[in-house]
Amino acid sequence: MHISEGVLSGQVLFSGMVLAAAGTAIGLKRIDYDRIPHTAILSASFFVASLIHVPIGPSSVHLILNGIVGLLLGWGAFPAILVALTLQALLFQFGGITTLGVNTMTMALPAVLCYYLFGSMVHKRNSIALFGSFACGAFSVFLGAIMVGLALVFTEENFFQVSTLLVISHLPVMVIEGIITAFCVTFLKKVQPAMLPGFHE
């Protein structure tokens, strides 16, 4: 879901940077130094997990997992995703310096939104938890794709068809992410429920 360098207009790039910086500042404020290893190691796991290619039809997609990032880290998703994207740029040259802000926004904002929308559902009855976690995974990808589309359309109205195509091509990814998130949350609830938001003994 990266936007490459050299595509977006100055206004979109700068708005992305300012908003991403604000989100990251809030996120960093919420992580004190004792939690940094925790955020860093989870960020590393998301980075590794996003390299997994899941088969879908004749092709395969790689996972984005920003829904689970949001669930586990809340506002911490901003710095975690910023760092993961920086590493992606450094190691694989996906994305770059100018698009770092926009790309962080398109992944981290849906993550934080999903944390607020669905975070409280994961400890409820099984059916509600299952629905909540599926929605969390699917919605975070959908919203991300919509934001990428908007960034393109704000750059140039004629990008509308490209954006539409991008959003449509993310629909299957959305379903897969929803399923994976639902299974993953079910697993975490059994194994380590304290990792999920709103857990009380």
Partner: peptide, 22 residues
């Protein structure tokens, strides 16, 4: 579904191990 479940559990396990390591 089996593939998706396996990957999901695998990612879950990765996160659990990561938390313990952290």
């Amino acid at each position: 579904m089996h593939t998706y479940r396996t990957y999901a559990y695998l990612i879950g396990m990765l996160l659990v191990k990561a938390t313990a390591r952290a």
